[in-house]
Design a protein around this nucleic acid. Sequence first.
DNA 1: GATTGACTATAGACACGGTCTATATCTCCT
DNA 2: AGGAGATATAGACCGTGTCTATAGTCAATC
Lengths: 293, 293
Amino acid sequence: MSIVNHELYKVFYWAAKTGSLSQAAKALYLTQPSVSHAIKQLEESLGITLFYRNSKGVALTQEGAVLYSYIEKSHILISIAEKKMTELKNLDSGELKIGGSESLFKHYLLPFLEEFHQQYPGIGLSLIHGTTPEIISYLKEGRVDLGVVRMPITDPQLEVREGIQLQDCFVAGAHYADLKNKVITLEMLLEYPIILFSRNSRARMGITELFHGYGYELKPEIEVGSVGLLIECAQKGLGISYVTREFVSKELEDGSLFEIQLDVQLPPSQVGIMIMRNMPLSRAANQFIERIK
Amino acid sequence: MSIVNHELYKVFYWAAKTGSLSQAAKALYLTQPSVSHAIKQLEESLGITLFYRNSKGVALTQEGAVLYSYIEKSHILISIAEKKMTELKNLDSGELKIGGSESLFKHYLLPFLEEFHQQYPGIGLSLIHGTTPEIISYLKEGRVDLGVVRMPITDPQLEVREGIQLQDCFVAGAHYADLKNKVITLEMLLEYPIILFSRNSRARMGITELFHGYGYELKPEIEVGSVGLLIECAQKGLGISYVTREFVSKELEDGSLFEIQLDVQLPPSQVGIMIMRNMPLSRAANQFIERIK
DNA sequence: GATTGACTATAGACACGGTCTATATCTCCT
DNA sequence: AGGAGATATAGACCGTGTCTATAGTCAATC
């Protein structure tokens, strides 16, 4: 192990670079005797004379020049590191990795991401798609800084903040126009082909459970893999899709889809922003979460 | 300029490398609280959290990992530098550059060089030929560590130690066998073709001056560029060579040359070992000079 | 659900040493 | 000879790096 105080190398670097102990002292905001003392200490620690001194300043000895060739590189690395740290601190560089579903990115996070990117263009953005359990494991592995998923999340290692509240609903296209402006029951709804999200999404589990609670079994006619397809299938008249209302606001507005009015209240769902408990956030992630609030 | 005490990076390096403040403390021969304090200090200086802590130890944050990528390289460089310094100190590596004439290397320094190289095989040897003024300028430029030339040397920037004493003399080969065992005068000598070293060597200047002191002018019939040729020419009977007796001991012994006995005493010449005054010697050079004494 | 062990954080005290001022010394230059 | 500018040395002081002691936290184990 090194016996030498690394701080002495910093002094050595400046003394060698400037060829003057006085100059080095200036650069280091020290006095000349301090630098003189530091160099002597370094020389004694190494057992080698590093400089020869004359009335004009100092010059490296052969051995000192060898040392300098290493210390210079080392010092430059540290300088770069410190510059990089300042950038990271000022959010001039860095990376923000977010886990979530495509639809949440598209319909919920996008405006925040846009604003964030505009303010901190140096920060790279990584959006990683996955199911809720996948995202949780990404979080634990450190592959994402934060996750955006549907509540509730119960993992004790995670800290969850509530985000926006969403409302799921059933929508249909022109083919089922006769259902428009009618209030229908769950039982009636089951007569129609239902289109659900294929994966074990929280939304699907919720609605299945709701039907179960009323004694019915919800079996989809069609299962699709994305919110985009849910919308498209409903528009084409293939059935009635269960979607998040906020994600089809455009289609509801232009009339290509309409919402089925039910006699029961469908449960709202909360978006949660997950981070690891007891793990400091990156500055970028921290700043981003502040924005969302 | 860096605000951070570089010693803190050493602590950071070990903490990051071992993933534990306690382990780092052990490696640094410190206590755990000291390391904890140092890391906190570093984090505050940079304004960035570098580790997250848990009951198992510490782990780098994103930003900490960035810092580590630089500090690790920097630290490795310093380690190599310190290893190299130890080598230089122990004379396991380094270089010894000596300036001198070919003949002095061959007939005077060779045995010392041999012994030195045997004891310190890690030290590279550089023998640089040149005239006395050339060697002096090499010394001043730092291109050689020490010079070995004929005395006297009067340069005030140089420090000269006396080496071996040499005796110049005139020698001839079989062709001038009639001069053998005769004592002859300078005037008589001038009747014969004289062979001198061509360059402005100290030896030639000395003998020319000696003749001048007696009222004669010494003009060589032949001028040659090396001691080897001086010997060869004399052996071939081309004339009488002025050489250093110690450099022709082999030829004097095997009878291919004999020394001309003069009625005046030729001045001896001293070998001097020159080093720069007020400039520390490299450890290798220092050690070598100790050997010569 | 106590208990134990391994780890880090905090508090407070002490002493070492890093830094300063003042001064000496040296060399070069005018 | 004197001045400018460089390094070396001496000695004093203050800061801070380091220690001991203790608390707090988490995880595993019985």
